[in-house]
Design a protein around this nucleic acid. Structure first.
Length: 355
DNA sequence: AAACCGGGGCT
DNA sequence: AGCCCAGGTTT
């Protein structure tokens, strides 16, 4: 049975499955557009199970758009700590501020207006419009492209940006006018649970409509060209304390990777000299190796070794560096690799206390 | 169009 | 070790 000739039957099959099987997620118990907005930003490139606790904490801490507008950036980053893509929360606050100031705290319900808000692109616009306002708008993400490419045997390369337009046009033709929210969420739910990269077609509620399944070619879709391999960057990091047991950290640049988060000083290793030798020669500081690990980003890998040591007497501290007490370090927003180092430092401290 | 931007789970 | 994920912004 082909979709193009049986759109109503396809909608019925998808919606009845979704309404019967949908997972009970926190953001599905609200129609507050701001809450839907928060959930969609968190869900960008991030799995549902990861998002749930962050969403609960965020809504409890910032229950209204006005409360979010008033927050300091450091508080925002602390709420987002460990979630990644930290600009998302800065853009979210910026967008919410626009709504509070320019729309009387009412999220605009048109694609044109909502798309002008910071951090809201074509997908998120469609998701909020359909889920919060019940409007028949497309919300095409990676899940939807995978599902639709299989249903209709669309073999265009989804790595090419303009390919997304093809899928948006399909959705606008196929979307259920009575319940666009459940239709869009049904497609996403299908992609997340059944029409996965390794699809579970025997469980699929719409497999009789699926051209790829009928040909046994479901694993050939979607067509996506490969990316180049990332590079590995050797990095040395230094967890240094002074004689008052305060730790030396610095705030990262306001632009680029991990913007405005805090870290123990670190350098990319270009020198032939080992950090240990360098510190002894240049600063008369003895370092001991604390731990090593790899941290994988989407585009590069840090091969990181962390050293620790004691700074005694007079040393010139460069601009942007500060000493913090244990409690203060705890409160700074830190990316995951720095959290790992800090956990190791704390374990060492605990071990010493226990003796 | 391509590069940049985190982190974790799955296979 | 590679792939993918409820993407958007900047260049």
């Amino acid at each position: 049975m082909q979709i193009v000739e049986n759109k109503d039957k396809f909608r019925e099959a998808l919606l009845s499955w979704y309404l019967r099987e949908k997972r009970d997620l926190p953001w599905r118990n609200t129609s507050n557009p701001y809450y839907i907005w928060v959930s969609e930003i968190m869900l960008q490139q991030t799995r549902v199970d990861t998002v749930i606790p962050y969403y609960e904490r965020f809504i409890a801490r910032f229950p209204t758009m006005e409360s979010l507008v008033e927050a300091d950036e450091s508080d925002l980053l602390k709420m987002w700590e460990g979630l990644g893509y930290y600009s998302r929360v800065r853009n979210l606050q910026s967008g919410v501020k626009e709504v509070v100031e320019n729309y009387g705290s009412e999220v605009p319900a048109s694609r044109k207006e909502i798309s002008e808000l910071k951090g809201i692109g074509p997908y998120t616009a469609g998701a909020i419009l359909s889920i919060a306002f019940g409007l028949p708008e497309h919300a095409v993400d990676g899940n939807v492209m995978r599902v639709i490419s299989r249903l209709l045997l669309i073999d265009d390369d989804i790595a090419i940006p303009r390919t997304k337009r093809i899928f948006e046009n399909v959705i606008m033709d196929l979307i259920d006018q009575e319940d666009p929210s459940s239709f869009n969420q049904g497609l996403m739910e299908l992609g997340a649970t059944i029409c996965t990269p390794k699809p579970k077609c025997l469980l699929c509620p719409v497999r009789e409509f699926c051209l790829a399944f009928n040909e046994g070619r479901q694993e050939e879709f979607p067509v996506k060209t490969k990316k180049v391999k990332m590079k590995v960057v050797p990095v040395a990091s230094f967890a240094m304390r002074n004689e008052k047991n305060e730790w030396l950290l610095r705030k990262r640049s306001e632009k680029g990777l991990l913007a405005n988060l805090w870290e123990f000083p670190m350098i990319e290793l270009a020198s032939l000299q080992t950090p240990k030798e360098l510190a002894r020669v240049e600063c008369d500081i003895e370092l001991t190796e604390l731990l090593s690990f790899k941290h994988v980003f989407s585009h590069l890998t840090w091969d990181l070794t962390c050293y620790t040591g004691l700074i005694q007497g007079d040393h010139k501290i460069p601009d942007g560096y500060h000493f913090f007490s244990n409690k203060e370090v705890e409160e700074l927003p830190k990316p995951v690799p720095v959290l790992k180092i800090w956990d190791e430092v704390k374990q060492q401290l605990t071990g010493n206390d226990g003796k």
